[in-house]
């Protein structure tokens, strides 16, 4: 489903060039749950941006399902993000003035999907927040906010969900809840890629990719762990 070949990214700031990725290659199958780990500066955020189609690699190939991403134009990238990728951020990134339902509905509006309210409501139900649909983010707890964000990521039935430190702003108990929600979704055949530097969180995945200095230093499968 995802195939990354020799991906590298060089940032040119004018005065100095920074190489964030140095030839990364891997494949991810449909329904996999992969954790990407590494210290800050290891290139895992850059890799996330590439996988999330927020940025294009300097060299190398990125294939998502049937699409070669590296050759797409900005508007096509926006479309890919809308249809095939769901984002979950550490700081939730919900629109503060919109209700949970409206936040969930937003990708459908940009995708011009009809029946958007109904579909968004179903997504909220899937994360167990149907009863909070008309609340604004300020009226929701951290865990609830992240659930809304997950509902928003799910709503377009994307090929992959990219989660960047999704439990980083939550207390451990709520973090656990969110992780079980991810595992639940993974069981329903949602492909998950999770970036974290917490070993404990990463261990819940089926596979861990460890990065350092823009390279993959370890890529291994884990035994199935009881949740």
């Amino acid at each position: 489903m995802i195939s990354v070949k020799n991906l590298s990214k060089v940032y040119d700031t004018g005065t100095l060039t920074v190489t964030a990725l140095r030839g990364v290659s891997f494949k991810i199958k449909k329904g996999e749950f992969v954790a990407i780990m590494g210290p800050s500066g290891s290139g895992k955020s850059t890799l996330m941006n590439m996988l999330g189609c927020l940025d294009l690699p300097t060299t190398g190939n990125y294939r998502l399902e049937d699409l070669e991403i590296s050759s797409l134009k900005p508007n096509q990238l926006a479309e890919v993000r809308n249809r095939r990728i769901g984002f979950v951020f550490q700081s939730f990134n919900l629109l503060p003035r919109a209700t949970a339902l409206e936040n969930t509905e937003l990708p459908l509006l940009y995708g011009r999907v009809s029946n958007s309210t109904e579909i968004a409501m179903n997504a909220l139900e899937r994360v167990g927040l149907k009863h909070r649909a008309n609340h604004k983010p300020t009226e929701l707890s951290g865990g609830e906010k992240q659930r809304v964000a997950i509902a928003r990521a799910l709503v377009n039935q994307p090929a992959i969900i990219l989660a960047d430190e999704p439990t980083g702003n939550l207390d451990s108990e709520t973090g656990e809840d969110i992780m079980s929600l991810f595992l639940q979704l993974n069981k329903e055949n949602v492909t998950l890629i999770l970036v974290t530097h917490e070993e404990e969180i990463a261990l819940k995945a089926q596979r861990i990719i460890k990065m350092k200095d823009g390279r993959i230093i370890k890529d291994h499968l884990l035994e199935a762990t009881p949740c």
Partner: peptide
């Protein structure tokens, strides 16, 4: 700025 970033991440096109 952040709102614009969110919108772009979930698929808003430049025109929108």
């Amino acid at each position: 700025t952040r709102e614009i970033g969110i919108r772009k991440a979930i698929g808003a096109k430049k025109k929108e």
